[in-house]
Amino acid sequence: MNVLDIISWVLILIGSFACLTAGLGLIRLPDFFCRSHAGGIMDSLGMGCLFAGMALQSSSPLVLVKLFFIYGFVLLTGPAAIHALARAALHAGLKPQLGKSTGGDASTR
C-alpha cells in the first residue's frame, strides 16, 4: 500500500460517511424543503469523495474520464432536479416550515 492507496481509503471513508449522512438527513429532517438539503449532500460530497477515491484506484485513463464525466453530469443535473422539485412543491402550495428567527416554530423535531 502506498500513499495514493491510503488517500483513496480516506476519501472512500469520507464519501461513505457523507452518503450515510444524506440518508439519515432524509429520514430525520422535519419537512420537505429541509430534506432537499440532505439530497444535496450525496450529490456533492458523497459522490465527489467516492469517485475521487475510485479515480485513484483506476487502471486506465478511460476510467478516469468516465468518472469525471459522470460526476460532472450529476453536478449539473442534481441541483436542477432538486430545484425543479422545490419549485413545483412551492407552486403546489406546500409551505416551508420556518424557524424562530422568522416567526415559525420548526426549530426542533
Binding site: G25, R28, P30, S44, G99, S101, S107
Partner: peptide, 22 residues
Amino acid sequence: IIKSNIDVAKIIWQPKISIDPA
C-alpha cells in the same frame, strides 16, 4: 461546498435536531 457540507452533517448527526429554516 466542503465547508457547508460539514455544517449540515453536524446538524444531521446531533442527537436532537435544532434548526432555524428561513
